[in-house]
Design a protein around this nucleic acid. Structure first.
Lengths: 236, 236
DNA sequence: CCTAGGCGTTTCGTCTACCGAAACAAGATC
DNA sequence: GATCTTGTTTCGGTAGACGAAACGCCTAGG
């Protein structure tokens, strides 16, 4: 898992990160390489191997989340005619685990596996519903100003999270990338915790406020349907 | 990996399949459950867990195969306007690890993670280039007759594999499913072994022989481009 | 209603194979 | 060429994994 978090590093650094001895790290990597769990990406750096690829693909067919989400994402994608993503929290980042893209030429491109910080743009929708101490760790004191619209202070972000919790969705107008607008709605699990979020992301010029309201309704509805499919119900 | 191969089984069966004692199987599953590598799918059956999902998604971004293949599959998909798949061998089956689908209404649906036998239909393209003893193990003496077009004997299948090796591609007209036609071309790795295959699969009524020839050319070309991207060259 | 056999789970004493520290080889950097 | 780095190997000691067997708890079947 350390290799997954930070690929293309050597034995020594991995040993330090994980707090194990260099001998042990070397031996573990060596046997993992034999089993194709990791592979060398260069002379002495490691990345995840083919076995993990196969296991991961198999896991995605065994795991309810993606299997249940795929048709919902595709229907939402078709209705809004924009790119749709499903994200979960991994570590202190938002990880895209599924997507659906419309067939029109000009669209926002999405990548399964891409990570984004939780404190900026629509990933805030995921962050808003986490434990206070986790939120505390994730929001930096001085967030980097990606665009003119990026919230400039920790205080501003925390206020935004509060608003998200109140209205039940999140809208980001050019916070991460100048000409993109995205909105997201939370997906609840059986235990009423938020386990994922559904995002619609589009070129800013195409989305007027009236359309945005419509998109939010559809996204919220899709998120709610996925929540129900995962066992959640209104009265948890 | 045994859990991946056969999900929803209990401790005892897994212990037998893997040849380890029941005690060991139980303890391993127990700690794997804590680490979210596996999870219980019911009271006493196991499936792959969330950690494997995350690792697998991460692996797919670190692994050259899928990263390099995705744009090639999408271009091929756009050109033939039919569903396109990338398959590899896992165990004695063909595993779909990536796909691209056109946006037209009537199309063949593909699922990443789905497995198919190697001895029927276009997966024969993968089988044809394997070691003789592996082929021997994969081709059953009495193949099940899925449709009227399914090869009826072991001998017929072996002859077909020979033909595939000769022409460099594989065509299946309704061998697995009555109204589907599919063709496939092999993807070579640096060591000139066949590591994957690119498949185009379409409704039979839409594909006349003249179009089929065109599709084969495009599929073969796409497979060759992927091969080159993986380091293969004409004179290996 | 009882028994037999299946399951997952727990215990226990043995002993193995994994561990950390240290040495070693091989490049880098200066 | 001295001195840092890397990755790799050796070695003795012991932590902890191991298999066998026992233990509840089921269900099936007589």
């Amino acid at each position: 898992m350390a290799v997954a978090r930070k690929p293309n590093v050597g034995v020594t650094e991995l040993a330090q990160k994980t707090g194990i001895t260099k001998s042990r790290a070397y031996r573990l990597l060596h046997t993992m390489e034999q089993r194709q769990i990791v592979k060398r990406t260069s002379e002495s750096t490691y990345g995840l191997g083919d076995a993990m690829l196969i296991l991961g693909i198999t896991a995605s067919t065994q795991t309810d989340m993606i299997r249940l989400a795929t048709p919902i994402l595709e229907e939402l994608c078709q209705r809004v005619n924009e790119t749709v993503q499903l994200r979960i929290i991994d570590g202190v980042e938002a990880l895209c685990i599924a997507k659906a893209e419309p067939s029109r030429d000009l669209r926002v491109h999405a990548n399964v596996g891409r990570r984004r910080p939780l404190y900026a743009g629509s990933p805030k929708c995921l962050l808003a519903y986490q434990q206070p101490d986790f939120i505390d760790r994730c929001v930096p004191a001085k967030p980097p100003a990606l665009t003119a619209q990026t919230p400039k202070s920790r205080r501003a972000i925390l206020a935004e999270l509060e608003r998200i919790r109140g209205q039940g969705y999140c809208v980001s107008r050019g916070e991460v990338s100048e000409h993109q607008v995205s909105c997201a709605a939370p997906v609840y699990a059986l235990d009423t915790s938020v386990v994922a979020s559904i995002h619609v992301v589009a070129p800013a010029f195409r989305i007027r406020d009236s359309e945005l309201a419509h998109i939010i309704r559809l996204a919220t509805s899709a998120a709610e349907r996925l929540s129900r499919a995962l066992g959640w119900s209104e009265e948890g």
